[in-house]
Design a protein around this nucleic acid. Structure first.
Lengths: 247, 247
DNA sequence: ATCCAATATTTGTCAAACCTATATTTAAAT
DNA sequence: ATTTAAATATAGGTTTGACAAATATTGGAT
């Protein structure tokens, strides 16, 4: 272990140290599950104080790069990167972006349509009973008229997640969890008023039937109709809001 | 500002405080560019020490949620979420995942093919002179035989980035930067030995010409050929490695 | 040999100070 | 009167030193 910072810039020591250790992890000088030197040793070897070291370590912990244990044989350890955690982090940040209005609904719907179409196709090729069952379960939930809008939306998200999972493609899943968790709610929430749940469920059913039959054409067609339905519902909701504001 | 933590659990005060402030930002109780209370005030109002508050703030800074300025009128401020920063963070984490072998080349290539095909189509619809120029510039770079493999790879990444940018779809760009920055290098590096730069450049040229002519069919066809070329080159590289290991 | 308690190690938290950057204000010089 | 330069106050950045809490190891008693 040879962590030492090369050039002392004026400020942000903690940041530099974090960056230093981070790059050591990234290029493999620190391996997975390896223990870092103790905080005291780090402080000594970097020539800084322990709280500063800790600030640096907290930055890394926030990025899910390390975790810590107390006690003897404890310490700070390089964490094995997990797609699940990354997905969550991306989703949170993407949700913020959406909340801030960084994207307009039209491009979100387009992105959803294009990317989920891929998933439909791959799901048809790679059809697994597990994914089909997960989707079917969500359809059952959605048919229950007593659930709230929020629950319906959550089930909607899970349905599309299952569709993505069925693609069986890891990198694609990583990319798309973002879209789903962050982008579906914003489209749904706006649209709820005008939107017929039964219509949505009908499209979902079409999709799952098509995937089961390995009919990619039918699956993507149903998806396309679902999203154009969402798009028109959104326009309708906007119009309604416009009228209300005129009064 | 009314940040206070509800229940004291046993450990991880800094983590809790970070989570507390984080949720305040997420659900809008803290607005963009708003100043948090001073670290001393936070420490007082949470009933903890300042170093602990700072650890919490560092976590948030690492997640790009806040930034700090010194001096009077300084303090910690809620940061406007920016797609650029998020992309970088995702890329870093995704690169780690790739490095750890979380995905195999085949699914990466598939994901690239499918998603970049979308970009090709949208780029044809949304063709902008700016994007075309950026792509053309990279082709010029790639034709220079004197550049290193690393430089060629970097230019390759920039070319595909420009292609994505040309789609003009923000959410899609967000998703795809991940793929490009993290997934192109791994495919390229393995393949360099066997791969003909001229061939790659030829495909790139086909793509840009097709986009310029708004011929989505030709563009996606060229992309598909490029990636199947990458895929076969990869197999060849694997075979070569296999033979070498037999000796 | 087994179990329990003392111990050592390492992270977690705290306290009080000092350093450093910077916006504002004040005072001086033009 | 205006501009410039220095003093000041503020708030983050860092240090020192200590104590608390968790936990694997060690040593002693049964």
């Amino acid at each position: 272990m040879n962590l030492r910072y090369d050039e002392v810039v004026r400020s942000g020591i903690a940041k530099q140290v974090a960056e230093n250790i981070r790059s050591a992890i990234m290029d493999g000088r620190l391996k997975i599950d390896e223990r870092l030197p103790t905080e005291d040793d780090l402080a000594r070897s970097f020539g800084i104080s322990r709280p500063t070291v800790r600030e640096a370590l907290k930055r890394l912990a926030a990025q899910n790069l390390i975790h810590s244990r107390r006690g003897p044989q404890g310490g700070n350890f390089v964490k094995r990167p997990d797609p699940e955690g990354l997905s969550k982090a991306i989703t949170g940040a993407a949700t913020l972006l959406v909340g801030v209005g960084a994207f307009d609904i039209d491009e979100i719907v387009t992105a959803r349509l294009e990317t989920e179409t891929i998933c439909c196709r791959l799901a048809c090729e790679n059809r697994q009973e597990e994914g089909l069952q997960a989707m079917a379960a969500e359809i059952l939930v959605q048919q229950d008229a007593s659930i709230s809008d929020e629950e319906f939306c959550a089930s909607d998200v899970r349905f599309h997640r299952a569709l993505i999972d069925s693609s069986g493609n890891g990198p694609l899943k990583l990319m798309m969890y973002t879209v789903i968790e962050a982008f579906i709610p914003i489209t749904n929430m706006i649209v709820f008023r005008v939107r017929e749940r039964r219509q949505v469920v009908a499209y979902h059913t079409q999709i799952i039937d098509a995937v089961r039959a390995r009919d990619a054409g039918a699956a993507t067609a149903a998806l396309s109709e679902l999203l154009s339905y969402v798009r028109t519902s959104y326009s309708a909701a906007l119009d309604a809001r416009g009228k209300r504001e005129k009064t």
